[in-house]
């Protein structure tokens, strides 16, 4: 009886050690807390078991999941606000970005700043994407940082659109 529980708990700890994805890790942690509270119960510590089951397998996983949910934002800063890209939901640029963020389960945050300094924006302000309009060819330039994992995926999505040019910059030397 005890040994089965101990084996299960150690099994779950080892799974957690090897797990890379955070959401699954949190679910394993909830199960781990449940098993732990069963062991506390078997050791005649009813009060501790009640506290552990309420905190460890209900409250803390919720906190963890909310904290994780806050870390899936896709921050876009735009210098342009016209027919192609605006606050309206039917503008083509907005639709494109929404399709992209929905497919990766991200929350889309868009800010319009017409006179922002792009220099240092990626490093200091945690921006994922900057949209500018080029004066030379009239295309919309999407700037992303090279270290971001998502830039290949967004680039593949935007490749067909003739209105968009894509640029990838190193994190510290920002194009202006």
């Amino acid at each position: 009886m005890y040994l089965i529980l101990y084996g299960l708990i150690i099994f779950f700890i080892i799974i957690m050690l090897r797990e890379k994805e955070s959401l699954r890790l949190i679910i394993y942690f909830a199960v781990f807390s449940l098993l732990m509270s069963v062991l506390y119960f078997l050791y005649h510590a009813y009060d501790v078991a009640l506290a552990e089951i309420a905190i460890g397998s209900a409250l803390l996983p919720l906190f963890f999941i909310i904290a994780l949910g806050k870390q899936k934002n896709f921050v876009v800063v735009s210098r342009v606000e016209d027919g192609f890209f605006s606050e309206k939901e039917d503008s083509p640029g907005f639709k494109l970005l929404e399709r992209f963020t929905n497919s990766f389960n991200l929350t889309l945050d868009i800010f319009f700043e017409h006179h922002m300094h792009i220099k240092g924006a990626f490093r200091e302000r945690n921006v994922d994407l900057i949209i500018v309009k080029s004066h030379r060819d009239g295309k919309y330039v999407f700037i992303m940082k090279k270290s971001s994992v998502l830039h290949h995926k967004l680039q593949r999505l935007l490749l067909e659109d003739p209105r968009i040019r894509f640029e990838v910059v190193e994190e510290d030397e920002i194009y202006d």
Binding site: E87, T107, I110, F111, E124, R125
Partner: peptide
């Protein structure tokens, strides 16, 4: 966050 939020994300 450094920017004022322009649009609520689609929840």
């Amino acid at each position: 966050k450094p920017f004022p939020r322009a649009k609520e994300a689609a929840v």
